[in-house]
Amino acid sequence: MNTPVAVVGVGTTGFGALGRSADDLAGEALRTALDDAGLSAADVDGLLTHRVDSYEGLAAEHGFDPRWTVALPPEGRMTGPAVQTAAAAVRAGLCHTVVLVHGNDGRTRGATYGAGDSGSTGAGEGYGTTPAVTAPYGMTSPGAFSALMLARHRHLYGTTEEQLGTVATTFRAHASLNPHALRRDPLTLADYLASRYVVAPLHLFDYCQINDGGVALVLTTLDRARDLPRPPVRVLGAAQRGRLTGSDLPPEDFWADALAEVGEAVLRAGGRRREDVDALMAYDNFSPNVLFTLEGLGWCRPGESGEWIADGRIALGGELPCNTSGGQLSEGYLQGWGLLVEAVRQLRGECGSRQVPGARTVQYACAAPIVSSVLFGRED
């Protein structure tokens, strides 16, 4: 079956240190998304949860008895596959309307994604799966893996701190236009360069913002979507490629081959070309990932991303605006879900002063041991 699928509702909570459980935040976002879609629990027959403690409790609280249910592992690499899986279920007729629900209480729990007993630790949260093997060599956190990848990129291609700082400062400028972003205070390149190293060569502002929050999306068939109040945002394509063999070590090609594969797959499925993409939402748990993503998707050649992003190319008004909400570096870390919502809101024309004029096609991409991409599009 090739039933067109569309996003018809999105919902988010506030972000920050909220002092609430992941399930409570997920439930709030779910109710907001259903209201946004003009639907009720009775209209829903599919449920996908991510980082929710109890999919059963969430369903019971909101009156769901779904025909199709999936609960995914907590890593952010699962966000793109979540959309792919839910859209496939709708296309296959396993359900006709599915809610995708994410809850995150990392800031309240004191998660640091580093070494020690902070609740969420070790390389397994981001890259690598056997920290017992890698920890003795300093690989005690996702940041250590990203720092090692950046160091190699700098060695091979001469990528500079100033070039990388463009990512953080650009996304902070975008966040200043987003009233929901955690970090809206100005960030200059001088501020970035003066900030402390966390794991050299990564500076403080190369790290995402740990926070609490909930996100939900509602997907249904395009035929049903046209009868609902919001403009349908089509899921034009979704693809993933696992790079799990040897994932205890950073990939030597920065996931370039897998990014190229999934990028080409979603463009082909959506009948689009790379030049048709109006904005990119790149998974920015750490700022070097944005460089790797641009290279892997073919926006520039390997090693040229640092130079390519100069002169405002990834800023609003540039050739390829990226992470227009501020991304995970400044809006808040929600394992990629906030980037999906931003893609939808851009295509619905709801982003106010950070709106990409006339946006018709927005791509999400995640460089991780499971590389993924989703292509969203507005109907003509």
Rank of each mutant, 00 (worst) to 15 (best):
A225E: 08
L228V: 12
P229E: 14
P232W: 00
P232Y: 01
R234E: 14
R234I: 10
L236P: 00
L236M: 09
A238H: 05
A238I: 06
A238S: 09
Q240G: 09
Q240H: 13
Q240P: 01
R243Y: 06
R243K: 07
T245W: 04
T245K: 10
S247C: 11
P250E: 05
E252P: 14
D253L: 05
F254L: 10
W255A: 07
W255L: 10
W255P: 02
A258T: 11
A260H: 14
A260G: 14
A260T: 13
V262W: 05
G263W: 01
E264Q: 14
E264V: 12
A265L: 06
V266N: 10
L267R: 15
R268L: 04
G270T: 06
R272E: 00
D276R: 15
D278G: 12
A279V: 02
A279D: 02
L280F: 04
L280M: 05
L280A: 06
L280P: 03
M281S: 10
M281T: 12
M281Q: 15
Y283M: 02
D284V: 04
D284P: 05
N285P: 00
N285M: 10
S287H: 04
S287K: 03
P288N: 11
N289C: 11
L291G: 10
L291N: 09
F292C: 04
F292A: 08
